[in-house]
C-alpha cells in the first residue's frame, strides 16, 4: 500500500481497567474507503472514535500506543485536539443536525473558525451541499429548520456540514444504519464520489455495504484487529477462520 494516511502502532484503549482495544496495528491508505466490520461490541466504533480523539470526552478512557496521521502522533501532548478534529471530520450513526436552519448547520464550522463574511459563507454552504449531493433538494429552503428534513436528508446535511470544514479524513460511524434503502444507497454513492478527495473510514455492520463501498476492509473481533486487506480479498478468500465465519454469517 502506497500513500499511507494513517499509521496505527500498538494502540490499546482501556475503559478504566477493561481493555477494549488490544494492540491495534494497521495502515489506512489515502484517498480510499476503508471499512471497519465486526460484531457489536468488537471495538470498531471505539477505534473510529480514537482517530479524531472523541474518546477524550469519556473520563475513564486511557490510550496507549501511537496514532500517526500523516506522520504526526495525534495523541502527542503538543497536538491541539481542536485542529485534529478540523482535519478529521466525523459523521455519526444517528443524524444530529443542530436545531438551526439548514444554512446555519453547514456554516457552523466556518463560523467557529471566524468566517463571517456573507459571500464566503454562501459559497461554502453551496459547495458543501453540492458535494453532499443535496443542493438541488435544499437550495430553495436553506432558511428552514434542519429538523424538518427526512432522516436521509438530515444525514446528508450532516455530511455537508462535515465537508464544509474541509477535512482530509472523514470518519463515518454506521452512517446509514438508521436509514431506508433508498437513502442508504444515496449515502453509499456519496461515499464513492467523496473518496476522490478524502480518505474515508466507515464503520458498518452491513457486510454488503462494506463490500459495495470500500476498497479495504478491517475485521475487528473482541477488541482485536483480526485481519485487514483489500475488500475483494477479505470477502472472497479471508486468511483467518474467524473472518470467514463472520463474513459467511456463522456468527455476529
Amino acid at each position: 500500500m502506497k500513500d499511507i494516511k494513517i499509521q496505527v502502532n500498538d494502540l490499546s484503549l482501556y475503559y478504566g481497567e477493561k481493555k477494549a482495544l488490544k494492540e491495534i496495528t494497521m495502515q489506512v491508505p489515502a484517498n480510499k474507503v476503508t471499512a471497519l466490520i465486526g460484531p457489536s461490541g468488537c471495538g470498531k466504533s471505539t477505534f473510529l472514535r480514537c482517530i479524531n480523539r472523541m474518546n477524550d470526552l469519556i473520563p475513564s478512557v486511557s490510550i496507549t500506543g501511537q496514532m500517526l496521521v500523516e506522520g504526526v502522533d495525534i495523541y502527542d501532548k503538543n497536538v491541539d485536539v481542536v485542529n485534529i478534529r478540523k482535519k478529521i471530520g466525523m459523521v455519526f450513526q444517528k443524524s444530529n443536525p443542530f436545531p438551526k436552519s439548514i444554512y446555519e448547520n453547514v456554516a457552523y464550522g466556518s463560523r467557529i473558525n471566524g468566517i463571517n463574511d456573507k459571500n464566503t459563507l454562501d459559497e461554502i454552504v453551496e459547495t458543501s451541499l453540492r458535494q453532499a449531493a443535496i443542493w438541488d433538494e435544499l437550495k430553495d429552503r436553506l432558511g428552514d429548520s434542519a429538523l424538518g428534513l427526512s432522516g436521509g436528508q438530515q444525514q446528508r446535511l450532516c455530511i455537508a456540514r462535515t465537508l464544509a470544514v474541509s477535512p482530509d479524513i472523514i470518519l463515518m460511524d454506521e452512517p446509514a444504519s438508521a436509514l431506508d434503502p433508498i437513502s442508504t444507497s444515496k449515502i453509499e454513492e456519496l461515499v464513492h464520489e467523496l473518496k476522490e478527495q478524502y480518505t474515508i473510514i466507515i464503520v458498518t455492520h452491513n457486510m454488503q455495504q462494506a463490500a459495495r463501498t470500500s476498497d479495504h476492509t478491517a475485521f475487528f473481533y473482541m477488541g482485536e484487529l483480526i485481519e485487514m486487506g483489500k475488500t475483494n480479498e477479505i470477502f472472497t478468500k479471508p486468511e483467518k477462520k474467524q473472518t470467514e465465519d463472520y463474513i459467511t454469517g456463522r456468527f455476529g
Binding site: V82, N96, Y108
Partner: peptide, 20 residues
C-alpha cells in the same frame, strides 16, 4: 449527540457551550 457534533467539527468546548 449535539455536543459531539459541534466538537467533531473542531469547535472548542466553550464554542460548543456558547453556540449549541
Amino acid at each position: 449527540e449535539l455536543r459531539e457534533a459541534s466538537l467533531a467539527l473542531g469547535a472548542t468546548k466553550w464554542q460548543t457551550i456558547k453556540n449549541v
